[in-house]
């Protein structure tokens, strides 16, 4: 499994958060996509919706499983990755890149302190 990029933070619910100024990109981790298997559907909030850190923001489905998506940060949804909605398999093939889910305008960038670093997340998923 490729190493988790160090340019972002991770939640224990297996989402990543990559901050860029006062906005950020959200996706699920490589570990999560591997556990899920072939992703077939993602249900995401609409642009304009407000989301709250660690609360449910959507669902991700594989052929035989469904999991809740929890947002790693609070904010307002700026953009939904329409390419993933159209081709959910991008979550499997490139979870940290093309398979991103949302871009959000952050309410409080300091919330990221509650998330794990790449090294901490590696340790978390190794147990």
């Amino acid at each position: 499994m490729p190493a988790n990029p160090t340019d972002r933070k991770y939640s224990k619910e297996h989402e990543w958060l990559k901050i860029d100024g006062d906005s950020a990109t959200i996706g699920v981790t490589d570990y999560a996509q591997d556990q899920l298997g072939d992703v077939v559907y993602v249900d995401l909030p609409q642009p304009g919706a407000s989301i709250t850190q660690f609360e449910k923001m959507g669902e991700i489905e594989s052929v035989k499983a469904v999991s809740d998506l929890f947002t790693p940060a609070s904010g307002e949804v700026l953009e939904v990755n329409e390419k993933v909605v159209e081709k959910p398999e991008l979550v499997n093939s490139d979870p940290h890149g093309e398979g991103w889910l949302l871009k959000v305008k952050l309410t409080d960038p300091a919330e990221a302190d509650k998330l794990l670093s790449a090294a901490e997340y590696d340790a978390f998923t190794a147990t």
Partner: peptide
């Protein structure tokens, strides 16, 4: 579309 169904959800 089995994720709608009881044996999964």
């Amino acid at each position: 579309l089995q994720t709608r169904e009881q044996h999964i959800r």
